[in-house]
């Protein structure tokens, strides 16, 4: 059988497939840039998924649903924020507990929403751009959230690179004691970052339940939050690379299914593990350049901060 994979459609679907991971990963990157490691991404995603789904169904408006998802994710993240920032609990364990709690909470919230079809999120019909051959169907034929996710990535990049706020955030992540000595409110900055991360994870979850699947089922994120965490590390805490990582991972996932659909004779087991293997391989190649890599991890990542210490 000849290879019949259409690259235009492939790119188009990988953009959609990658969006939930991209949203969650860019949020988590900001959190980690502030020196906080929140392993609760999966929990925040799934709570966002049900909040967005339930509100969209009740109001009939996906847009309101997405707002609710962001809020839901952010509220849940504040639980993590309170515990880790004020009560100085261990971040790794608290994050994992957040995932456990979020999975349980979302199932409880979602009990009345199984087997319902959500209101559909319209695709944008962008005039002119959408009519460009090749590029039109490939890049300019999606729903608004795809572009919002890209805008968030660009916004985060610009914020970290060019603004004073970005500088403060990075300072807090690199050395909270120094940032504190300079008069910045470390805890407040970190809480803001955690809240942003929660909101992004919530949006990513809602993108799954409202656009990409779309339906509500318990545990439907099926590990996407963990992949988002891996993508942040893969990106060595850089916004552009988060985009690259998410699209690479999503792209290979879509590609391997396309290869199967096209009947290419590669063992299925190998194809199904390929997204993970290739991500590792690419990271090895990137990070073996010893001059640059590893210097990017925020120095205070995962450490608790207490002002009088």
């Amino acid at each position: 059988m000849e290879l019949s994979i259409n690259p235009i459609l492939l790119v188009a679907s990988l953009m959609v497939a990658s969006t939930p991971i991209l949203l969650a990963a860019i949020g988590e990157m900001v959190v980690e840039k502030a020196g906080v490691l929140n392993l609760g991404v999966e929990g925040m995603m799934i709570v966002g998924a049900i909040c967005g789904f339930a509100i969209a169904v009740e109001t009939g408006s996906p847009a309101v649903g997405f707002v609710a998802a962001a809020l839901g994710g952010a509220i849940l993240s504040m639980l993590f924020g309170f515990l880790t920032q004020y009560l100085l609990s261990n971040q790794v364990a608290t994050g994992l507990a957040l995932t456990l709690f979020g999975l349980g909470l979302s199932s409880l919230m979602g009990q009345g929403y199984v087997g319902i079809k959500p209101p559909s999120t319209p695709k944008l019909d962008i005039p002119i751009l959408g009519d460009i051959p090749v590029l039109g169907p490939m890049i300019f034929s999606h729903d608004l959230m795809v572009y919002i996710s890209l805008a968030i990535v660009a916004g985060v990049w610009a914020f970290l690179k060019y603004t004073r706020g970005g500088l403060i955030l990075r300072a807090v992540g690199e050395s909270h004691d120094a940032a504190h000595a300079l008069g910045y409110n470390v805890i407040l900055v970190r809480l803001a970052a955690i809240g942003f991360g929660g909101a992004c994870a919530g949006l990513g979850g809602a993108y799954l339940s409202l656009v990409r699947v779309p339906q509500w089922t318990e545990g439907m994120t099926a590990g996407a939050g963990w992949i988002a965490l891996a993508i942040v590390v893969f990106a060595s805490w850089r916004a552009g690379r988060v985009l690259l990582g998410a699209y690479l991972f999503g792209g290979i996932t879509v590609l391997q299914l396309n290869l199967q659909a096209a009947g290419v004779a590669i063992p299925v087991e190998l194809l199904s593990m390929s997204p993970y293997l290739i991500t590792i391989l690419v990271l090895v190649i990137i990070s073996s350049d010893r001059n640059r890599a590893a210097l990017n991890a925020p120095a205070s990542l995962g450490r608790s901060f207490h002002a009088s210490s």
Partner: peptide, 18 residues
């Protein structure tokens, strides 16, 4: 529901850590 147990475990961890 199993979900309530999961949420409960999450709570226990939160309190222990807090």
């Amino acid at each position: 529901p199993a979900a309530a147990i999961q949420a409960f475990q999450g709570m226990l961890l939160f309190f222990l850590l807090a």
